[in-house]
Write a protein that binds this DNA or RNA. Sequence first.
DNA 1: CAGTATAGC
Length: 755
Amino acid sequence: MAVTSSHVRSKNHKKLKGVNPFRNKLKNQQSDKKKPVIFKDFEDDDQDEFLDNLVQSENKTPTYHKLTKQELKTRADEILEKQRKKLPVYQNKDEIMTYINKNQVTVLIGETGSGKSTQIPQFLINSVSKGKKIAVTQPRRVAAISLAGRVAAEYGCIIGDEVGYSVRFDNRSNDKRTKLKYLTDGMLLRELMMDKKLSQYEYLIIDEAHERTILTDLLLGFIKGLLQGSRKNDLKIIVMSATLQADRFSKFFDDAPILFVKGRTYPVENFHLSLKDSEEQTDMVESMIRSVIQVNSSEPFGGDILCFLPGQEEIDKAVAILQKISPILKDSYIKQKLKIPEIVPLPLYAALSPSKQLLVFNKLNSNKFQRKIILATNIAETSVTIPGVKYVIDSGLRKVKIWRHELGLSTLLTVPVSRASCQQRSGRAGRESEGKCFRLFKENDFVNLPSQSESEIIRCDISNPLLILKKVGVKDILNWSWLESPGKNAIVIGLEELYSLGALNDSGELTEKGEKMALLPLAPHLSNVLLEAMERNCISAVLDIVACLSVENLLLNPNPDIRDIVNEKRYQSATLGRRHGDLIMLKEFYDIFNGLDSVPEKKQWCQEMSITYRGFQNVIKIRRQLKDYLKKIDANLEKNEQFKNKGTASNDDEESDDDFIDTNDKKIDVESILKCFLYGFVKNTAIGMPDRSYRTTTTGEPISIHPSSMMFSKKDNPGIMYTEYVFTSKGFARNVSRIELEWLQEVAMGVKKFK
DNA sequence: CAGTATAGC
């Protein structure tokens, strides 16, 4: 029986060699094989849309917009017969539905390929009351969008009709007609801030709950409250999770039943280092390269190799070496008359330019005797699915950023992954046919790994989550229904932080300012900066910079061979930035980008500066959204000095940003801007010492300016302010600006001080 | 004079 209720099967680790206890084989899958996608022009950033469609390609969305109602229906019937009915979840529909109908909360373990995310919501769609909806949450935007597309096709409607989605910047749902809405968990949380009862929903399906993102954890905590209170009788919950976390969810919801549905993937054989291998420490990159060569030469042609390494540095190093030895190997194979494919190494990590990321999806020329070697971070573990992978080599390592509450800094550590991660990684080899996973550690080490990774909530800065709790009206945060509490210490420090930013009053209640901060889609510090800027006549420039800060990897790390040229170009372009620091540099770059007339010019400039064009498009989207929020927050905004003479802007024009330009748009008021930032980052300051080093104002610890900063070579700053403090080989200030000591005094007087 | 996983509003 595919469905097992009320318990999670225990796993026998002794079986691991040669047998994968987590997968079951299913035949006749050839029809589901993905078609190869070939890209002709990899330099075009506009192809990012294609990338979005490719990630999570299991749910690839065809477009049915032009089809008539009848055609939609016909198509849906066809999918039902040919595909849906074969899914394990569909085959166990009645049994699953019995459990869901009987229980307020059901935990469902659905393995990859079981069809849980697409089918379960459809089983429920016809039993939803008039005017009510089903919400299905996802941790990632692309997943929400592609699932909605797939399900709309299966249901036989246009996206945004009965089936829709809602993610940041993109809402395709209809308040009245949409019955089934896929959304990011962050989006549902935002809806929760507006309507504490989530009254429009009758079913909440929390998908990928085992990933334990902060936002999913918060949602589950709020849901528990709802089930015990106002929504006791008219709300049902389905938590979808991987095996290892299912027990936790079941216990959290008063021993809710656990259903287990098998997946449809191929078996993967796991190999570990032999026990006889020497204990001596070898270089990870070196052993990865050895393994790649070995696997490539010993395994039959056909099927690519996916390698997991902890970070960009290791990946770049490995790619460089593999590229160097690839032609040498090829020659030697030919000379020895060995039939071994040539290796084509490809890097994959988030900070890689979008065009280079796309290369991993490119199908190699079938006439050439080659094998792709993809060297990836854990971006390939959940976010990106690469077709054609048959072999996985796992270093067993990853990088984790850990927030130190008491120090207000984050540390970046390379740590062993969890058993859950190992299984997820090896599963990547069995998506299209049976595969093999080679682990660069011993079986004994595997057994001793933690069963799952530390959840986000206990290793991240929780000031924003705490602000959300306050906004939703949680009084006793320490004893709130935490799925996992971040701990008293973290909570107290986080609340102190909110208090010092003026979000909470002396009694710990949310202030008017705190209300506004909770509404802004930013970290509380940055919200505070924006609110301060509203009163200082420099909101436009500060908004530009804050929007830039909200985009990850806007400025790429240029490759070593062009690094000096790019750095010099950046330095030359930021005439104010090289004196005042990185924040002002961002403002200058923003202005330059916007000042260029045509898209080709903008792209050209981005290329030269090693900036992502797409990143800047996001900056502009975010800026527009922040501006809209600010308008909502401050009803008097239109009367504000900066908006006089402009009146109400006509909203039909996409470029209606004009109403937000301050009077001094040509001249950058450096002092005002940096003082605004000080209001959010007073604690992130350091004072210049006579020996030209810096010491933090809070603890007196030595701190160095990170080499990636414009301020790195500038030694005459009386003080510095930074938006990030990280500890790697030593304490580094990242994103650094020069400040005068008088500013520090002035702002510190204006900021409520704790202690 | 160093070198940063991933995701979300």
